[in-house]
Structure formats: structure tokens, C-alpha cells
Nucleic acid binder design. Structure first.
Lengths: 199, 199
DNA sequence: AAGGTAATGGCACTCGGTGTCGATTGGAAG
DNA sequence: CTTCCAATCGACACCGAGTGCCATTACCTT
């Protein structure tokens, strides 16, 4: 397992001519200039000096560009759930992990904002996001299922995961609309409301 | 405004050669046979005896086929919210309307099940559903906003709308997995849990 | 019968996405 | 240095969804 690191072993072969991150940066510039829909894969590939076909070796689809390396992020979230003390009430744990998960470095805030602006406002990306959210929800549902002693696909874990995600998205939308409030603050407020049944 | 009825006035012109409902039925058969992805618009059009181009005059996209006339449904839901007694607690009202909205005729249950099976299991449809759900959420958020004296796009109305939708989807998924339970029962259970903060 | 109106459907086009395959580029072994 | 292998690249061809355009068809009204 010493080899399974993310550094990639490179036993030989041609070097990759760019990176996901570089393409993402580049694509974001174009999206800002012309808009997401009016930027073609060919535009991005040309700007990056690669072939259209090669673009699809870095991203499975155009819609995946704004998601960066979301899967690795989910591993982090999973780890935080695992590190949660068992005596912490269920929804408190969920809230803390979700809020903490979204506590990003000040320097990265503009990036996060831009990323989320795309995801939450471009229809094609709104739609695609559902597929990525499913993975996010699974992380929550597995934790909740574990705690409740139910399968992750049972009603309560699923309902809680769905509700948590929904509330988090609502908080994100508020954050986009009003940059002066802290994202973590909004998430905390909204998730607290959820855990009290919006009383 | 006497003309704005949905009966369509027909001052002349060629008759429509089919209907949304007929196309939907037909498409569902093909989807069941070959699967959603492996059924092309041309397949559906050919089966219906219309041109490919004409299909897009009945449905804006292939992904919209399983949604039938969802917009009219939303009008119904809006009306039910409007008819809610003002003294009924907020989340009770939401729950009752949502549950009632999903109380369908026994004869239509198989149809609803098939429809939802497509929407909730085919990735392209899962993704697309987000765009339709947005309209659904707006109906809820407008009602909640009205009640709370806040704009529909404020945090609480949005959070409640998102959470309600999420929980409803979780209930639907359970219903799909286990046909023996009543959908309305599942929705009621899940939404009650939501309104008590999943205590 | 004539004229207006709305639906139809063919055509051509764009774009996202995929399979194939030969061409490149590098590391490692001899 | 040469040879071999492995991974990446990128060109080409193809498919299907979706759209603009426009002539044609079918129907209703006068």
C-alpha cells in the first residue's frame, strides 16, 4: 500500500501536458468572459494548447469542470465524521462537520464563490450538481445510518441527508447573494434551525 | 380573460397530430424495452409517426418526457396552499399539502411508480429533475415566505423548501424500493420527523 | 373557392461526448 | 547509446440532442 499514494508512480510514459487544476483555472476565465454555455470544449482545449479529445481525459464532461477534485474533499468529510465523538448528538455532529467542512482559507474564498456561482446559477450545472450531491449525501447518510444502527439507505438516514443537503444549499445561495455574511455562519444558523424543526 | 382558458380557442389551422400524453405513453414503452439512454428521439418520433423535429414541439427535451404536465400540477399545489387555514402551524400546513398533493388515484399508482422510477434512477433524469424541483420548491418557499412575512428567497423559506423537498424525495425513494407501503404514509412519517428536528 | 392560420417535417448545423488508432514522448533496461 | 515499453496525445469519424429556417400541409373561416 506504500505505492497507492496519490503521487503516482510513473514507471515511464509520456508526461501529462497539463493538469486538471490548470484547465479549471483557464476554463473559469473563459466562462467569466463568454459565459458557460457560450464556451465550447474546443475553446478551452485551444486555450490550453491541447486537443479536444485530450480535454476529456482530464474531465469526464464539461459540467465536471467546476467541481475540481470533489471526491477527495468527500474523503476529508468522511474522516471528520469518523472522528466525531460518539456522545455528540446526531444532528449536532452533522452540523459541526458540515460547517467545518466549509471553513475555507480566506484566500480561497473568491475561488469558492466563483465556483459556487457557476454551480448554483448555470442551469446545466445546477442539473449536473445533483449527481455530485448524491455522493455528498451518501457520506452523511452512512454516518447517520451508523449512528442509528440502520442501513444508510433507510428512510431516516436518507431523509436527514437530503434535508441537510437542502438546507446547506439554501445557505450557500444566501451567501452568494450577500457576500458580507460568513458562509459558516449561514450554514450554522440554517442547520440549527433544521435540528429544531424550524421552530 | 374569458379566452385564456386551457381549452385553446382554435381559430383555424392544422390540427395537432398527437398529444403530449400520447407521446409520453409511447415513450415509456420504449424506455421500458430498451432503457432511457438507448431510446433515441428518432425512435420515439418514428413510433409516433411524427418527425423528429415535431417531437421537440411537444417536449422541450427528452428529459422532460417523464414530467408530463408538471406545471399544471404545481398550480394545484399552489391552490392547496392558498386554501390552508391561517391558524394551522406552518410545517403542519406544508406537510398536509405535500402529502395530499401526492394522494393519487389507485389506478394511477403504477403510472406514478414508473414515472418516478425513471426520474429517480436514470442519471440524466436525476440531473434534469433539479430544474423541475426548483419550481416545486418555489411554490413551497412562497407559501412559507408569506406566512413568515419574509421574501420567498430569504434563508428560512428557502431552507424549509429545500429540506421539505429533500425529505419528500427520500420518502419517494423508499416507496420505490418497497411497493407495499403507502407513499402518503411514508411522506407523512418523514415530514413529521422533519418538523420535530428528527428527534 | 379563397385566404389566413397553425402545425408539420425536412435540412443543415452546432456542440457534447465516445471509440479507435497511429503518433509522440519519456523512463528504464540492456 | 540503443531498444523497448508505457502512458499520453490528438486526429478522425461517428452518434445523438437540440435549434433555426422554411417550404408544405391541413384546417377553419368568410
Amino acid at each position: 500500500m506504500a505505492e497507492s499514494s496519490n503521487v503516482a508512480v510513473r514507471r515511464g510514459g509520456r508526461r501529462r501536458s497539463t493538469s486538471r487544476a490548470a484547465l479549471e483555472h483557464l476554463a473559469f476565465e473563459l466562462f467569466d468572459e463568454r459565459g458557460f454555455e457560450d464556451t465550447t470544449i474546443e475553446d478551452i482545449a485551444a486555450a490550453a494548447g491541447i486537443g479536444r479529445r485530450t480535454f476529456f481525459r482530464y474531465f469526464p464532461s464539461k459540467n465536471d469542470v467546476p467541481w475540481g477534485s470533489f471526491d477527495e474533499q468527500l474523503d476529508v468529510m468522511r474522516a471528520r465524521f469518523a472522528a466525531c465523538p460518539a456522545e455528540m448528538p446526531l444532528l449536532d455532529a452533522v452540523r459541526e462537520v458540515v460547517v467545518d467542512f466549509n471553513r475555507v482559507d480566506q484566500a480561497e474564498v473568491p475561488w469558492l464563490r466563483r465556483r459556487m456561482r457557476f454551480i448554483l446559477t448555470v442551469p446545466a450545472l445546477q442539473a449536473h450538481s445533483t449527481l455530485r450531491y448524491a455522493d455528498w449525501r451518501l457520506v452523511v447518510a452512512e454516518f447517520v445510518g451508523e449512528r442509528l444502527g440502520e442501513p444508510a439507505d433507510a428512510l431516516r438516514p436518507q431523509a436527514i441527508a437530503h434535508a441537510t443537503l437542502g438546507v446547506a444549499i439554501a445557505a450557500y445561495q444566501q451567501w452568494l447573494a450577500d457576500p458580507t455574511v460568513e458562509l459558516t455562519q449561514l450554514l450554522d444558523t440554517a442547520l440549527r434551525a433544521l435540528s429544531t424543526g424550524f421552530a
